[in-house]
């Protein structure tokens, strides 16, 4: 009966996170005692900029929902209702466009970039980390450890600045800006995919290079511990082949905490990747966030915060639910 209790706990935790995200999203911007969204809209209406046309309509809708005549708790409940329907409102800067519309495209780019790089970094970093700890690994491989682990101490986007300069400006091997060429319309043809991949290589490389070390450091520690276990000595004494010793006896036992930390690391990867996108003008969530901060487009900023947390909470939930299948110890504990 471990499953029901464990499942319930994880699902409850998921909703707790989503609720926290919504609450924080509602109250934090109002910390200064004012409603910055209202102020921003009023300013926008007064300036009468062409790209905010028709925004009066939005102000009306907003006033009905979050009017000053309503007490704060009622506004809060309205907001929670909106969030549960995933109604994120409209952008102030690009008025008729809804926040959801703006984010849908961007989220696809970001998720594409992040899943690829995270999986690659996880697999290669884990493998590399366990080889570094493995006393029978070749020396050249183990001598790669210090530089790769140093890279882990550098924020992704600073590495991105360097790669951008070397490969896009000096050598001109890769394009330095955007997710596709100016003038191309995104579609599902082969040539477009190739173009997108070409643009994604440098941002992906910045994330990959510095997260490799992160996984390697953690894995090395686990592998050193496992190598010292008695069953390893016994297996070795029995004459079990090196390769089997490494994969079946060592790696398999050392890898479990790595999968647990995958859930925790996702948040870190996401925050780092936001700025990588900005550095390369990659058309994902990060670039949209950067531009919304510049344009003081609060609904979009809030939408991004909520979307990222929702994505992370879902990832965590999925990992939490698959973990007991991989690790019998969790099943027993729960």
């Amino acid at each position: 009966m471990w499953a029901a209790g464990y499942l319930l706990k994880r699902v409850a935790f998921f909703f707790l996170i989503v609720w926290t995200a919504a609450t924080v999203n509602f109250f934090l911007p109002r910390l200064s005692g004012q409603d910055p969204i209202r102020e921003r809209m009023i300013k926008q209406v007064q300036s009468g900029r062409a790209w905010g046309k028709g925004i009066e309509e939005m102000v009306e809708v907003y006033n009905v929902k979050f009017g000053l005549d309503k007490p704060l708790w009622q506004q809060y409940l309205t907001y929670l209702g909106d969030v549960s329907r995933f109604d994120l409102g409209h952008s102030i800067a690009f008025y008729p466009k809804s926040v959801k519309e703006i984010l849908r495209q961007a989220l696809l780019w970001t998720i594409g970039l992040l899943t690829t790089t995270t999986l690659l970094a996880f697999v290669f970093g884990t493998l590399f980390g366990s080889l570094v700890a493995w006393t029978r690994a070749p020396l050249w491989l183990r001598s790669l450890a210090p530089p790769i682990m140093t890279l882990a101490a550098i924020p992704y986007y600073l590495l991105g600045l360097i790669l951008l300069f070397v490969f896009a400006f000096e050598l001109r091997w890769f394009p330095g800006h955007g997710g596709y060429r100016i003038g191309t319309i995104p579609n599902l043809s082969w040539s477009f995919v190739l173009e997108a991949v070409e643009h994604a290589i440098l941002p992906a490389l910045s994330i990959l290079l510095s997260s490799l070390g992160f996984w390697a450091i953690a894995m090395r520690g686990m592998m050193v511990t496992v190598e010292g276990e008695d069953y390893m000595t016994l297996a070795e004494a029995k004459g079990i082949k090196n390769r089997r010793l490494f994969f079946d006896y060592g790696l398999r036992n050392a890898i479990l905490p790595q999968i647990t930390s995958l859930a925790l690391a996702m948040g870190y990867v996401f925050s780092g990747a936001l700025l990588v996108e900005v550095v390369f003008g990659f058309p994902g969530i990060g670039t949209v966030l950067f531009n919304s901060i510049k344009g003081v487009d609060y609904p979009v900023i809030q939408g991004i915060v909520l979307t990222i947390i929702l994505t992370l909470a879902t990832t965590t939930l999925i990992l939490d639910l698959t973990l007991p299948m991989l690790d019998p110890r969790i099943r027993r504990r729960a």
Partner: peptide
């Protein structure tokens, strides 16, 4: 709960208020 939410997002919300 706090560790599941990337802190940069919370910081962004505070910073846009002030």
């Amino acid at each position: 709960v706090g560790l599941t939410i990337p802190s940069i997002l919370i910081l962004i919300l505070i910073a846009i208020a002030l």
